[in-house]
């Protein structure tokens, strides 16, 4: 049974940027890119990997969608190199960090414009803002069911068999399509490294580009990207990274202080 899969990906600031290099622009309430790179959010890559594995078994098609600035093209090219079938770039020419409802509305409009789909896969959250809402809101926008924190997708008797991680173990979910699922990482969905040949080929593949106007969304509202929530402050918490070496005249006194500090931090949790 061929499955028509849509994977939504997001390009983010490299989460591995060392703390000492990390700056924020308090005015814009955004992180400063500086010398850091942009990467595809890891959970989105887990989602694409899950989709690729599903397609390898079921057949079908994978369309990757991303809503983002010009640089987002890189993330989509990489998805193509990983062997997604098609890529759609919806240009974000508005607020750099739009609220999740704006994003979900854009993605929903794009998916409707594409027509039929069986399953939409998204990463559980992004490594920058960690909002963790896009999948849920997208399901509501599309009016379909959703399953969160899935780490394995298989073809079931009557749709899909999903395995997902819970606080204490795992659950299996039987689901009929259409469906939105959010993907979490697992040893089985470590994103594949694209083959060099495919990387080079990806630069020659077509990339669909849509603007907000193409989608029939409320472009002004979506561009502002703050009708759901607004970031009113962004700051780097002052860290006293200076290690406090416990002092005291005797070893016993120092251990006493050490023990007290342990109680303080464990008790406050």
């Amino acid at each position: 049974m061929p499955v028509n899969i849509i994977v939504c990906v997001k390009q983010i600031l490299d989460p591995e940027i060392p703390s000492r290099d990390f700056r924020v622009d308090a005015e814009q309430r955004e992180a400063v890119r500086g010398a850091a790179n942009l990467v595809t959010n890891i959970f989105c890559e887990n989602a694409l990997e899950t989709a690729l594995q599903l397609k390898e078994k079921s057949g079908g098609k994978i369309t990757v969608i991303s809503y983002g600035a010009d640089s987002t093209e890189d993330a989509l090219r990489k998805a193509l190199a990983m062997k997604a079938d098609a890529a759609i770039h919806i240009l974000n020419d508005g607020q750099a960090h739009p609220d999740p409802l704006s994003v979900a509305q854009v993605l929903a409009a794009a998916i409707r414009k594409l027509g039929e789909f069986d399953v939409v896969m998204l990463g559980r959250e992004s490594g920058d803002w960690g909002v963790g809402q896009t999948a849920g809101l997208l399901a509501e926008e599309l009016g379909v069911a959703a399953v969160a924190f899935v780490d394995k997708v298989e073809i079931g008797a009557d749709g899909l068999q999903l395995k997902r991680q819970t606080d204490v173990g795992y659950e299996r979910v039987a689901a009929t399509m259409p469906l939105v699922i959010s993907i979490t990482n697992d040893e089985h969905n470590v994103p594949r490294i694209p083959k060099t040949r495919d990387v080079m080929m990806s630069f020659r593949q077509p990339l669909t580009k849509w603007t907000l106007e193409d989608l029939g969304v409320n472009a002004a509202e979506v561009r502002a990207g703050n009708h759901y929530y607004a970031v009113v402050d962004l700051f780097i918490p002052v860290q006293e990274l200076n290690c406090e070496f416990v002092d005291g005249d005797t070893l016993e006194a120092r251990v006493e202080k050490f023990a007290q500090r342990i109680i303080e931090v464990t008790g406050s949790m």
């Binding site: 990390f22 924020v24 803002w129 970031v231 009113v232 962004l234 780097i236 918490p237």
Partner: peptide, 20 residues
């Protein structure tokens, strides 16, 4: 309602105002 939360892998804190 305003909510404080940790963002960028704990490197920054954000205050978010819920509009609805």
């Amino acid at each position: 309602v305003r909510v404080n939360r940790s963002v960028y892998g704990g490197k920054a804190m954000a205050t978010i105002e819920l509009q609805r």
